[in-house]
Design a binder for these strands. Structure first.
Lengths: 160, 160
DNA sequence: AGGCATTACATAAGCTTCCTATGCAAAATC
DNA sequence: GATTTTGCATAGGAAGCTTATGTAATGCCT
């Protein structure tokens, strides 16, 4: 293969070496995350993520939600129908555009998010409580260092 | 709520504070990982993970694979049938136990894993190549610090 | 204003991957 | 040797996603 973009030969070698390290970590990380997240207790990942978006950004159009969650528009239609049936969101027809509907979080939806957050918070606190204060500080620091770098890394990554 | 386990009051408070930080990072991490991973390019996550297990551990019983991947036995039966149809694994009946079948990786399966790895390796190297050497080193260091701590954190976590 | 393309969403049909319930043969146990 | 257990297969079904298509409202253009 010929990756001949610029003249940074040595940098490229370093990148490969670093990649071997990072790849292992990323793989494990992905496995952990998927194991933790992709086992829906009662509601799907996309559903929670959508509710969270509505909580942060207020009423949003269906198509915008689909783009945000990187799913097709029909998928989001289905999801919203489910969430509406469960009383977690409600639709408001846009006054200015009779085609569009603005999806909004209901009180029940907000409560569900809150409950999930506090449960996770408790659980995490219990786990952290079993670590020593040094470990805890180290974890917080490592997490805060790692995340922006990971974002930086994936910044140039094309959409999957 | 009353979490009155021992007398480590101040530690508990610290845990909650740390948890708030870590939770944000973990959430983002999970989102990134899921976005990257759970979009199967050509083969499902469980499939790849199963192949990887076979590559590391050699021929394995179907039930053991199911436990390993945390799916039901029928699901694993289906998955193995698919993988077999695609020529990625083969079944060998156990000589000592006529009920059992040992699932083994074929050459094609090993090749698929290798191809995936080298592709990922290239991609990661390209991404890392756009970072400065300092950023690269920082990322490697952060990753290596973060992972063991995360493992330590999840050690006491019950199975989801 | 009328005609046409575009936009926002809904519906239909199908795929993948998982599940539970059940069946059956080989092995283990008594 | 009869019964239970184990290892796997099959049947039937649900969740969540997809593409293809339909429909109504809007914007644009002459």
């Amino acid at each position: 293969m010929e990756i001949a973009h610029t003249d940074d030969g040595p940098s490229d070698l370093e990148s490969v070496a670093a990649g071997d390290h990072v790849a292992v970590v990323l793989e494990e990380l992905a496995t952990l995350a998927v194991r933790q997240v992709s086992t829906p207790r009662d509601i799907s990942l996309t559903a929670v993520s959508t509710l969270a978006h509505l909580d942060r950004n207020g009423p949003t159009r269906l198509t915008a939600l689909a783009v945000e969650q990187a799913v097709s528009q029909p998928s989001m239609t289905q999801l919203v129908q489910r969430l509406e049936r469960e009383g977690l969101v409600c639709r408001r027809t846009d006054r200015r555009d009779a085609r569009a509907t603005r999806i909004a979080l209901t009180e029940a939806g907000r409560k569900l998010l809150g409950d999930r957050r506090s449960r996770r918070r408790e659980r995490l606190a219990m786990l952290l409580d079993e670590m020593s204060p040094e470990e805890r500080r180290a974890l917080v620091h490592a997490a805060e260092t790692f995340l922006p770098l990971l974002h930086r890394l994936l910044a140039g990554s094309p959409a999957p």
